[in-house]
């Protein structure tokens, strides 16, 4: 990393800056492992409750526990907290420091997001292993690898969703309520409260089109081997890509409008 980054093309420079930020943020968050542990506990609670409830309702269906263990992993690996890591900076004016750096502000947000996810993954895996052991679940490598594309897009989608909601901090001081509402939709229609297959027919159809299933339920379903054949995966990928495009466009527009309103409180 000693070579001048100007020698790289712009995408390479952006990747380098993100990598630098991730390194920095991993170091930064290492000092608050106990706080991260509370985040992991909060993240795994929903999938664990779902697993207990639905395994009790359908004791003969072993794929439910597999699904929820996969969902638990997907949840901890894709959690996003931009309402804290980004919106709070708007509220207290410390985003000014990011605005003065010669890089897009979102790079810092992405770096923080990935760093937290790395820590949550490290801390969440033992819980997933314990849950898998307790319920006799065995995830196969083949199924897990086949879920990789939908997982990557799901993780991106999850970030784009929370980041877009967090951008409303330019207009309101109630961003936590807005993100909380988004989180409720996620739990309801993303496959945490119930696997999508257990929802009533019309709701299931709607949920399949909305972005939430692509964030959580789809990667978990594929990893648990509950999706058969390539077409449903390709359809899921197409929905994910479409929603990412919609949310990225929304985020860009919100950022451009919001930054003009920014009044740099307390700085």
């Amino acid at each position: 990393m000693t070579a001048p980054a100007a020698a790289y093309g712009r995408p390479a420079r952006v990747l380098l800056l993100i990598a630098l930020r991730i390194r920095l943020e991993v170091l930064e968050w290492s000092g608050t492992w106990w706080f991260l542990f509370t985040l992991v506990i909060q993240a795994v609670l929903g999938p664990l409750i779902g697993m207990f409830v639905w395994s009790a309702v359908y004791p003969a269906d072993s794929s439910i526990a597999t699904y929820y263990v996969a969902l638990l992993l997907v949840t901890v690996m894709t959690e996003s907290f931009e309402q804290f890591t980004f919106s709070e900076k708007i509220y207290d004016g410390t985003i000014s420091h990011d605005l003065l750096r010669p890089q897009p502000v979102v790079i810092t947000t992405i770096g923080t997001n990935i760093a937290i996810r790395i820590w949550l993954t490290v801390m969440g895996i033992p819980i997933a292993v314990l849950a898998a052991f307790a319920f006799g679940v065995s995830l196969t490598w083949a199924a897990a690898l086949s879920a990789l594309p939908v997982f990557v897009l799901g993780a991106t989608l999850s970030f784009c969703w929370i980041y877009t909601l967090s951008l409303t901090a330019f207009w309101t001081e109630r961003v936590h309520s807005i993100v909380g509402f988004g989180w409720t939709l996620n739990s309801l229609l993303g496959g945490t409260i119930a696997p999508l297959a257990f929802l009533p027919g019309p709701l299931q159809d709607i949920a399949r089109v909305l972005p939430f299933y692509g964030m959580l339920g789809l990667p978990a379903d594929v990893a648990a081997g509950r999706v058969h054949g390539l077409p449903p995966v390709l359809t899921g990928l197409a929905y994910q890509a479409a929603w990412i495009a919609v949310l990225v466009t929304s985020a860009v527009l919100l950022w451009r409008a919001g930054i003009r309103r920014y009044t740099v409180v307390g700085a």
Binding site: G93, T94, S96
Partner: peptide, 15 residues
């Protein structure tokens, strides 16, 4: 460079 006495250093405070 924009240096403010009220917030001389920003960013990661753990570093």
């Amino acid at each position: 460079a924009f240096i403010r006495g009220s917030q001389p250093v920003g960013g990661s405070q753990e570093l």
